[in-house]
Structure formats: structure tokens, C-alpha cells
């Protein structure tokens, strides 16, 4: 059985590393199904937001279609996206170009 890592060229590996470095944003997208109160609960549960912050992000999702709920290292951003997915919210990751 071949090992994919052994077949990856150094240049490809460097590009991948570079792409995953830096600051990443966790962005929650709107859906027409989940209740506002449910989204607030999920934000409080997953990110530890207080009621006011959770409501602010929920309203951004509802009114603007998306809200940046966290930014930081890729690995942790993926962990948050996974947890949001467990709660059936749609989340994407975006590189934070301002860093």
C-alpha cells in the first residue's frame, strides 16, 4: 500500500502548510429552518457567549446571511465547525486576510 505523504512533493507540502497557516474565521451561514432561540442557545453553548453577544451574532446571521463567530488557528476553527455541524448549523472557514 502506498503512503500518500511520501508521494507529496515538497513544494505541494509547503503550499498546503502555508494555506493552513495564519488566522481563519469561523463563519455561520443563515438557514431558513433553525429557530432564532435555538441559534442563540448554540452560540452560548459552543462559544460561551453571553446572551447579548449570542443575540448579536444570531441577528447578523438572520439579517446579513452570515456572521463571523470566531477567528484563530485553523485546527481550532475546524473543531468549532465540527461542533456547529453537530448542532446542525452551517459553518464555513475563511482565511482572515487582515492578518
Amino acid at each position: 500500500m502506498s503512503d500518500e505523504h511520501e508521494q507529496t512533493s515538497p513544494s505541494t507540502h509547503a503550499v498546503t502548510e502555508l494555506r493552513l497557516e495564519g488566522v481563519w474565521r469561523v463563519v455561520v451561514l443563515n438557514d431558513p429552518v433553525n429557530l432564532m432561540s435555538y441559534v442563540v442557545l448554540v452560540f452560548k453553548k459552543v462559544f460561551g457567549f453571553d446572551e447579548q453577544t449570542a443575540r448579536k451574532h444570531m441577528l447578523e446571521v438572520h439579517e446579513q446571511g452570515r456572521s463571523i463567530v470566531w477567528s484563530g488557528l485553523r485546527e481550532k476553527a475546524e473543531a468549532y465547525a465540527f461542533t456547529l455541524q453537530q448542532w446542525h448549523l452551517t459553518a464555513i472557514l475563511e482565511p482572515d486576510e487582515t492578518h
Binding site: 475546524e78 465540527f82 455541524q85 453537530q86 448549523l89 452551517t90 459553518a91 464555513i92 472557514l93
Partner: peptide
Amino acid sequence: APLALTDLDPEFADAWTGEL
């Protein structure tokens, strides 16, 4: 809610999907 992350390693995405 289908996985919205499109740039995950396929094996990693499969593992995620299984857990979810």
C-alpha cells in the same frame, strides 16, 4: 445539514461524517 467545508482532506471528511 451537509458538510459545508469543501477543503477538508477526503479521509478526514469521511471520519467527520461518520462521527457526526
